[in-house]
Design a protein around this nucleic acid. Sequence first.
DNA 1: TCTGGGGTCCTAGGACCC
DNA 2: TCTGGGGTCCTAGGACCC
Length: 356
Amino acid sequence: MSTPWVLHVDLDQFIAAVEILRRPELAGLPVIVGGRGDPTERAVVSTASYEARAFGVGSGMPLRIAARKIPDAVILPVDAPTYLAASEEVMATLREQPGAVVQVLGWDEAFVGIIADDPEEYARTLQAAVLERTRLHCSVGIGDTLVRAKNATDFGKPRGTFRLTADNWLEVMGERPTQALWGVGAKISKRLAALGVTTVAELASADLEPLAAEFGPRMGPWYRQLGRGDGSNVVDATPWVARGHSRETTYQVDLADPAEIETAARELIAQVMADVVAEGRPVIGVALKVRYAPFLTKTFTRKISETFDRDTVAAEIMGLVARIEPDRAIRLLGVRAEMAMPDDARDGHTPTPSGW
DNA sequence: TCTGGGGTCCTAGGACCC
DNA sequence: TCTGGGGTCCTAGGACCC
């Protein structure tokens, strides 16, 4: 009998794998991709190859620390256009699979909705197609909901498949910490622990009232649902519409001079406006993010109720720049423009990690 | 060891209106 | 004289994801 399934396709060490494709001599070596490839700069690791991960290096780690852990690692700069091109080929391959509904989640992952009676067989065919077309390996999580498919993928890595359904969810996930769930990070898992909830099974059977009191009427119930693996099984292929665009830069040397700060802000504004003009949608809000050294971040926002031209948008942002506290060194500046959404793109929705 | 850059969504509190 | 109750909008901040 054919039933609906959700597949979660995740490329194995995607960025590192793409780099190794064009430099095959790097295969088997600890490869780290991050920043401009210079470990003396302020930057973090985007992806580490499996060989590098064996030394404890992973995404998000400061490049400087990664280089210290693996002195002879190959450190490469991030080359976004190349990864995007590889990603588009992978996604095109997924869309060619019979009956596949594809929802892209990022460069290296997607949900694929299918109707099949043997989802493992479908997954293996899909993996072979991706490998043949792109020479990239992927892992596939199989589930009866989006959440279960997403969580299943880790158990299939690398190059394998794993199935999580209502039948084996608690058996497989129940004793794991809540942070293993997609959408529960360090902060939320700590607040859950304060309520006496440390495992997935405990979250799945927790009382709603304390959860709602702690996290609000929407997020409280949402977390318990995550703990159960329940939720939608609908894969949505609707093209993604950006809510806004932003640019931010961490300066290698902290900024202190007001003239320098103004120049930096104007550069970011020009970049963001270029993105917005390419979209052709009106700007309805702007924001300025400031990180004072060493690590205090502040955000100033300004909502705009009319459609403003680019000069007015720039002027609004410069008005926010004027609120930067003087006499404090600045490590990061970010500028963001929020755009009006098309009428049909703001339907009611349930809370979702990273917008699916 | 010292923390990138691009996004998304939720919550709390104040202002303002009736 | 003292201050209800509901609603909406805006701002700031927090948390998470890849």
